[in-house]
Design a protein around this nucleic acid. Structure first.
Ligand code: FES
Ligand code: FES
Lengths: 156, 156
DNA sequence: GCAATACCCGACTAGAACACTCAACTAATC
DNA sequence: GATTAGTTGAGTGTTCTAGTCGGGTATTGC
């Protein structure tokens, strides 16, 4: 089991998309700017998100990315799986054969744990994240920040 | 958050200790043999387990390792933490400052998740693992296997 | 048609971590 | 004093992360 920046970035970017996608497609440049993520790295992640059919893309000027379906239908679990960060905590990957082809002492434990984690993350959708107070707060702060930085750049 | 072979080995070895420690100290060679883990690698892990006061060591012939306290008092969470595999799923490590010193959009989500995982693993003790049917079964198979391999070596 | 925008794609890389391995040492027992 | 068994530190191959870079191609507006 591993949960690294890859999965976290993917969820963060998708949440950004859910928050700012109402007015039309959102560019990766915008997301990268707001969330402080490398745009080139985001491109890699969105390649996977697109292949997993979680987002759709629109090319050309005025283009960008949009959610492929309603925020209620996209779970955190799905996002993380799509970028290749398995929720699986077992060593065998579910095949029960990590000790010379036989089941090991602790397989059941890791299997249970995996199940718990998946349950938790499947129950959380983008919509439920958007509805959270802290998310609203942080998002508002980010928007003000972005506005300020744009103005600063226009002046300078 | 990461859960790799390191943490899994640590739990497996501790469980082996709980299963076979009744008759006195258990050597790393025994654990390595039964569980199919590199003995040298186990040495490193037991160094940490000892520093975390989860096991005690006895040197010399007839020596080995023993649990430092009762199996009911040792949780899976404690074992994993002791070898340095944080259960923490946040990027900031709890300081809420991963985006330029400010809290990021998804901090709360990862914080929640970490809490859930820790709750789950804290609730599971070595004693409760020993009591499980699958563990008993696998352990019995391992003992038979070990016996067979010893006999095979004696013959050969 | 032409240029600007923005997604698309593959290759490359520094650094970190994992999963070991090796060698030498000390303490305890018989 | 020989054997057992824990203790320690250093080193190593491999894999992965978290990027970077450089070039594409589709779409739009002039
Ligand atoms: S983790 Fe599945 S068999 Fe060991
Ligand atoms: S994960 Fe804690 S601030 Fe981003």
């Amino acid at each position: 089991m591993r949960l690294t920046t890859k999965g976290r970035y993917a969820v963060t970017a998708m949440l950004d998309l859910a928050l700012h996608g109402a007015a039309g497609p959102v560019t990766l440049a915008d997301i990268a700017f707001r969330q402080g993520i490398s745009q080139n790295y985001l491109e890699q992640l969105f390649g996977k998100l697109k292949r997993a059919r979680l987002v759709i893309s629109l090319r050309g000027p005025g283009g960008g990315y949009a959610l492929a379906c309603k925020p209620e239908e996209i779970s955190v679990s799905a996002i993380i799986s799509s970028v290749g960060e398995g929720v699986d905590a077992t060593r065998c990957g579910g095949t029960s054969d990590c000790q010379d082809g036989l089941i090991c002492l602790t397989h059941e434990l890791w299997s249970d744990l995996s199940h718990r984690i998946d349950e938790f993350m499947s129950a959380i959708s983008l919509a439920s994240l958007v509805a959270r107070d802290e998310v609203k707060l942080v998002s508002h702060r980010q928007d003000c920040d972005t506005q300020r930085r744009i103005e600063a750049r226009a002046v300078g």
